[in-house]
C-alpha cells in the first residue's frame, strides 16, 4: 500500500511540537530529556480546553499541528490510535465503582469511550467525515498507520493521530508507560505538496532486533505512540529509510520512506 505524507506533528519529552523538534529529530540539534507537558490544543473551544484530559490534549494538539496547513480540515477522515486510551477517565471510573457510594460521573462515563478524542476533534473542526479509533497495545501506532494507509489506498485523504499517556495508579504498575507522547500526520493518495511517499508491507514475523541507537531512539520503547520515532526521524532528516514498526508480538510493518 502506498500513500503520500504531508503535515506531521510530535509532542513528547523534550519534543514540544514539530517546528521546535525537527532539528533534534534530524540529529542536527541536541535533544535532552524533559517532561512532556500537556500541550494546549488551540483548536478546542476554551471551555473544552480547560476540561480536557491530558490524553485528549496530547491527541488534539498533535492533530491540530499536523493539519495546520490543510485548507479544509473538516474534509479529512480521521484515524485515532491509542494503546491505553484515556487512563485518567477509566481510572477515575474504576475508583468510583469501588468507593462506598458507587456513583459514576456521567461526564466521565461519556468521556470513557475510546473514541472520545476523535469525537472532540470532529466537534472542534465541524467534521462529519468518517472516523476510526483503534487500540493496539504496544503496536497502536502501526495499527493506526495500517488503517490510515487503507483509507488512502481507497482514494481518501486521512489524518492519523497516535497518542498515549501513562495510566494512573494502580493500573500503572500492571501497564507501565514511561511518559506522554503524541504524533500525527496527514496521508493522501496524491503527491501534491507531500513531504514523503510511504510504501507499506505487512510481515508475519517478529520485529528484527535493531542496531543500538542514540538516547532519542531509545525513547521509542517508552510509549506506544513513540514507536513512530524511526519514521519521524527519517521525515525530519528528509532521508530515504526502511522503517520497521512493531504491530503484534509476531508481526510488524515495513515502511519504505522516500522524500518527495
Amino acid at each position: 500500500m502506498r500513500a503520500f505524507l504531508s503535515g506531521v506533528a510530535v509532542f513528547g519529552p523534550g519534543l514540544p511540537g514539530w517546528a521546535a523538534s525537527e532539528a533534534m529529530l534530524a540529529g542536527t540539534a541536541p535533544w535532552t530529556m524533559a517532561e512532556a507537558l500537556p500541550p494546549v490544543p488551540a483548536v478546542l473551544a476554551p471551555a473544552n480546553r480547560r476540561r480536557a484530559s491530558a490524553a485528549v490534549r496530547f491527541a488534539l494538539a498533535a492533530a491540530d499541528d499536523a493539519s495546520a496547513e490543510e485548507p479544509d480540515r473538516a474534509a479529512l477522515e480521521t484515524i485515532f490510535a491509542s494503546g491505553n486510551g484515556d487512563g485518567a477517565v477509566v481510572g477515575g471510573i474504576l475508583d468510583a465503582l469501588h468507593a462506598p457510594d458507587e456513583a459514576v460521573s456521567p461526564t466521565l462515563f461519556h468521556n470513557s469511550v475510546h473514541n472520545a478524542a476523535a469525537g472532540y476533534w470532529h466537534i472542534a473542526v465541524g467534521s462529519t467525515r468518517p472516523s476510526l479509533s483503534l487500540g493496539g497495545h504496544d503496536g497502536a501506532f502501526a495499527a493506526g498507520l495500517l488503517a490510515a494507509m487503507t483509507a488512502a489506498a481507497h482514494g481518501r485523504p486521512v489524518l492519523l493521530v497516535a497518542y498515549d499517556t501513562p495510566l494512573p495508579s494502580p493500573l500503572a504498575a500492571k501497564r507501565p508507560t514511561g511518559f506522554a507522547f503524541a504524533t500525527a500526520c496527514v496521508l493522501r493518495p496524491d503527491p501534491g505538496g507531500a513531504r514523503a511517499e510511504l510504501a507499506l508491507r505487512y510481515l508475519a514475523g517478529p520485529l528484527p532486533a535493531a542496531a543500538p541507537g542514540d538516547a532519542l531512539d531509545a525513547l521509542a520503547e517508552g510509549n506506544p505512540a513513540a514507536r513512530a520515532l524511526p519514521l519521524l526521524r527519517a521525515l525530519a532528516a528528509r532521508r530515504a529509510a526502511l522503517v520497521r514498526l512493531p504491530l503484534l508480538e509476531d508481526a510488524h510493518l515495513e515502511l519504505q520512506v522516500s522524500p518527495c
Binding site: G83, G85, V113, H114, N115, A118, S131, L132, S133, L134, G135, G136, H137, G139, A143, L146, A147, K174, R175, Y202, A204, L247, L248, D250, A251
Partner: peptide
C-alpha cells in the same frame, strides 16, 4: 494486557484460530 487491554480480543481470536494476518481492534 491479556484481558482489559482492547488488543486482548483480536490477540485471543488470532491465537485461538491459528491466524498470522494483521490483528486490529476498533473501539468506536
Amino acid at each position: 494486557g491479556h484481558t482489559h487491554d482492547l488488543q486482548a480480543l483480536p490477540a485471543y481470536l488470532r491465537a485461538r484460530l491459528g491466524l498470522r494476518g494483521p490483528g486490529l481492534v476498533i473501539s468506536t
